[in-house]
Design a protein around this nucleic acid. Structure first.
Lengths: 121, 121
DNA sequence: TTTTTCCGGAACAGAACGTTCCGGATGGAT
DNA sequence: ATCCATCCGGAACGTTCTGTTCCGGAAAAA
């Protein structure tokens, strides 16, 4: 099914990763994933579902049943963030969340008495 | 894939038709469709797409991808990540994406020819 | 009653699969 | 310059899965 192979390649390019990296994200052998991306093999349903989930897209899109919507550059970054975050352990995810919130949450104003410690925000 | 079989049966029941009638709607041999509906066979991708289209449902639904997700602790973390990421500047977001991807994408398998160096994470 | 439709077990030939092996191309490090 | 790691894709092969055919029982329709 050539549309599937095409969509796989497009999705990896959207995410800015190689097909080999996409294979590892999906926990598939590199040759196996390459067979899909080159329209030489087709996955079973469980694998199709996993690929759609891991690459944060839909099976409908991959199968050519729906078309994608264009994305801004920023939306693409958020997309990549979600795909990557999905593969993290809970511990790693907690760390990333903490870091991101530290950047996102405004710092308190200086009281003038003393510079507050960086930790314990 | 049992969820697929289950969804096929549910969809035919929704439409008030027998599995044999659904098979004919999809222009598939009755035994063939029955194998899908009884979780004894799986269709190729083209056939999956056709079934979804003819039965006016989605491949995501048939594959069990569109179940409502329970609010697990992890789902909450991902939610928080998205909320926090939304507040970042593009530059900060790019940094977080890069860090997250560095953690997320596994390295290639050892070739077995040589022991890879410990460094180079 | 007979006929039609629905349903599912069994068997089999052929197709498609994942995996292994391999080598060339590319880019980075030294 | 060389060496190494990664990416990529061709080929081969054993294993698994597929669609199809045959069949008979159950249920529904005529």
């Amino acid at each position: 099914m050539d549309i599937f192979a095409k969509r796989l390649k497009e999705r990896a390019a959207d995410l800015g990763i190689s097909n080999a990296q996409a294979a590892r994200l999906c926990e598939l052998d590199e040759r196996r994933y390459a067979n899909y991306a080159n329209d030489q093999r087709e996955p079973d349903l469980m694998t199709l579902a996993k690929i759609a989930r891991v690459l944060n897209t839909s099976a409908d899109h991959l199968l050519g049943l729906t078309d994608p919507t264009p994305q801004t550059a920023r939306a693409r970054l958020l997309d990549r963030l979600n795909v990557a975050a999905a593969s993290l352990t809970d511990e790693e995810l907690r760390t990333i969340v903490t870091q991101t919130e530290a950047l996102a949450i405004p710092r308190p104003k200086k009281t003038g008495k003393k510079i507050p410690p960086i930790s314990g925000v």
